[in-house]
């Protein structure tokens, strides 16, 4: 299990875009399960929507992307999401929900990788998607 201090050391993301609270289980190059506790203090809720907070679908995708990134050991490289396919949003995610996301590797060849991700709340699927990453050198990504 990876707690938040471990996650700080691995992901470059910080507020307001660090979307992972804990990695529950991790088997590199195979499967990872992570969680995100959704609270009403998330900054995007003030605009989505002002009187009815609902987690934006793209933030669920971002959470999938960040958790899925733990699957790969790519020293000196940073992964960028370059495509998303078959994304389905079945239920709304609202403050108080705990988002559990399971990602599994579909293919990983060189600097390209594809994963399947399923997001659940209370054991019910709220969203699913297939994400593709491109890994680039950290120096290149900072240019």
């Amino acid at each position: 299990m990876l707690k938040i201090r471990d996650i700080y050391g691995i992901l470059p993301h910080r507020f307001p875009f660090l979307m992972v609270d804990r990695i529950v289980s991790l088997e590199k190059e195979n499967k990872v399960v992570g969680l995100k506790n959704v609270t009403v203090n998330e900054p995007y809720f003030q605009g989505h929507f002002p009187d009815e907070p609902v987690m934006p679908a793209v933030m669920i995708i971002e959470t999938m992307a960040q958790i899925g990134g733990f699957l790969f050991d790519m020293p000196g490289k940073r992964g960028f999401v370059i495509s998303v396919n078959k994304a389905k949003f079945k239920r709304m995610v609202i403050p108080g929900d705990q988002l559990i996301i399971e990602c599994s590797v579909v293919v990983h060849l060189g600097n390209k990788a594809t994963i399947n991700a399923v997001a659940k709340v209370d054991d019910k699927v709220v969203a699913s998607a297939e994400l593709a990453y491109n890994f680039v050198d950290v120096n290149e990504s900072d240019e």
Partner: peptide
């Protein structure tokens, strides 16, 4: 309205 699905999405870096 709400977003039901994104069938495909791609980004040119």
């Amino acid at each position: 309205r709400y977003l039901a699905s994104i069938e495909d999405f791609s980004l040119n870096e």
